[in-house]
């Protein structure tokens, strides 16, 4: 954590002060071999998302929940013949959405991390299934900022980075929009300095 002291307090006023992040709750993959006293481990990316990510995800999920469950209830109400099996389906969907509403946004906020260095963009996402993505700057093809209507209201933004492989891209959701703007500016700067390769 000693590198942290070299940080300047740059950034917009909206960036909330946060508790020290990387330890202890950061999910770090450790290898299981007890034989080696220094096993390889992948460290978590440094930065958390904006706290409003939780609110954004909750609102988003509730919109989906209203839409999907509403449609299903509509079917249930309109077609008498399908009620027998539609009933349990609706309950199961409701249970899934309840978990997604109450647990998932906060859990994801605790897990998701991101970082950009001079060499790579590095993210950790997921909640039940975790996903680490490393993209070398030299392989970046495009950098986009995306802001949906909800995100705009909450002053959040999503950065999308693409490479020559469709599965090789990454999107960092739920960034403070000022942080996103600054990050994209800096990424563009580094990308221009880094010689791409002809793949």
């Amino acid at each position: 954590m000693d590198q942290m002291s070299s940080f300047t307090s740059a950034g917009s006023p909206e960036v909330e002060p946060e508790t020290p992040e990387v330890e202890p709750e950061a999910p770090v993959v450790e290898s299981g071999s007890p034989a080696s006293d220094d096993p390889l481990r992948i460290r978590a990316p440094l930065y958390r998302l904006d706290r409003r990510f939780i609110l954004w995800r909750t609102l988003n999920t509730s919109l989906w929940a209203v839409g999907v469950i509403g449609t299903l209830i509509g079917f249930y109400w309109y077609f008498e013949s399908i009620r027998e099996w539609m009933g349990p389906v609706i309950w199961i969907m409701a249970a899934i959405f309840l978990v997604n509403l109450l647990v998932m946004p906060t859990y994801r906020y605790l897990v998701h991390r991101w970082e950009t260095t001079d060499r790579a963009v590095y993210t950790l996402t997921g909640w039940v299934t975790r996903e680490w993505r490393i993209i070398p700057i030299s392989r970046i093809q495009s950098i986009d900022t995306v802001q949906g209507p909800l995100e705009r209201k909450l002053n959040l933004a999503t950065i999308k980075v693409t490479t020559a492989s469709r599965q090789g891209g990454v999107s960092i959701e739920g960034l403070n929009s000022d942080v996103a703007t600054e990050t994209v500016r800096r990424l563009n700067e580094i990308t221009q300095q880094t010689r791409g390769d002809a793949t």
Binding site: S6, F7, A10, E18, D38, Y47, T117, Y122, V179
Partner: peptide
């Protein structure tokens, strides 16, 4: 940059690029 540990950890290069201005995003603490 991202994988620590292992026998090669002695040659681990300290990350110097954190000095850039936006390095502190989300970590003002």
């Amino acid at each position: 940059e991202f994988i620590d540990g292992g026998s090669a950890s002695a040659s681990f290069v300290p990350r110097t690029n954190l000095d850039h201005p936006s390095g502190g995003f989300g970590s003002r603490n």
